[in-house]
Amino acid sequence: MTDAKTAFEIRLRQSAAETGALLSSLLSDTPLSDETTRPAHLMAAMRHGSLNGGKRLRPFLVRESAALLGGPADAALRVGVALECLHCYSLIHDDLPAMDDDDLRRGQPTVHKAFDEATAILAGDSLLTYAFDIIAAPETMLADRLKTELVLALARAAGPGGMAGGQALDLAAEKSPPDEAGITILQAMKTGALLRFACEAGAIIAGSEPEHRERLRLFGQKIGLAFQLADDLLDLTSDAATMGKATGKDAGRGKGTLVALHGITWAEGRLDVLTKEAIELLAPYGEKASILQETARFIASREN
Results as ranks from 00 to 15, higher is better:
C88H: 07
Q221D: 12
L271R: 00
A7H: 10
L127H: 01
T242C: 13
P210C: 12
I205Q: 05
A153T: 05
D272L: 12
G192V: 02
G54D: 06
N304H: 13
G192A: 06
R38Y: 12
I291M: 10
I204E: 10
A45Q: 09
R63C: 11
R270P: 06
R253W: 09
H48N: 07
L150R: 04
E294C: 07
R105G: 08
F60C: 02
A188N: 14
L61I: 06
A206E: 11
A278M: 06
E35S: 09
R105W: 03
G124C: 10
A98F: 00
I10V: 14
E287C: 00
G244D: 03
V259P: 01
A67P: 01
G80R: 06
R106C: 07
A300L: 10
A44W: 02
R38C: 04
L292T: 07
V273E: 15
I291Q: 05
S208C: 13
H262D: 09
L57K: 06
V81R: 10
T129W: 07
H112A: 08
V79M: 04
D125G: 13
D272G: 08
A131I: 11
I92G: 04
A153N: 01
Q108L: 15
T265E: 15
A136Y: 04
G165Q: 03
L216P: 06
L194A: 00
E180G: 08
T257A: 01
A67D: 09
L195R: 04
D133V: 07
A114L: 04
L233N: 03
E35M: 09
A82R: 12
C85T: 08
H212C: 10
L195A: 05
A118T: 15
T119G: 03
L96A: 05
L258W: 12
A193T: 12
T119C: 10
S50Y: 09
L218M: 15
A206W: 14
T129V: 13
G263M: 13
T110N: 02
S238T: 00
F219P: 11
A173V: 13
L236F: 10
I134F: 02
D250K: 03
K222S: 04
P39F: 13
C88Y: 01
T36Q: 15
L236Q: 15
E294W: 02
G254H: 12
Q187M: 11
R297G: 00
G286P: 00
A267L: 08
Y89V: 05
E174Y: 11
K245P: 00
L171M: 15
K147F: 10
A120H: 05
Q187A: 01
M163Y: 05
L171W: 10
F132N: 02
H212T: 03
A188I: 00
R13W: 07
D272V: 04
I299M: 00
L27Y: 00
S290V: 13
L233K: 12
L23Q: 12
L225D: 00
H87L: 02
S176F: 10
P160G: 14
D116I: 13
S25M: 12
A296L: 13
A73Y: 12
K55E: 03
P59Y: 01
A120S: 02
R270C: 07
L104R: 06
R297T: 05
A240L: 09
T110G: 04
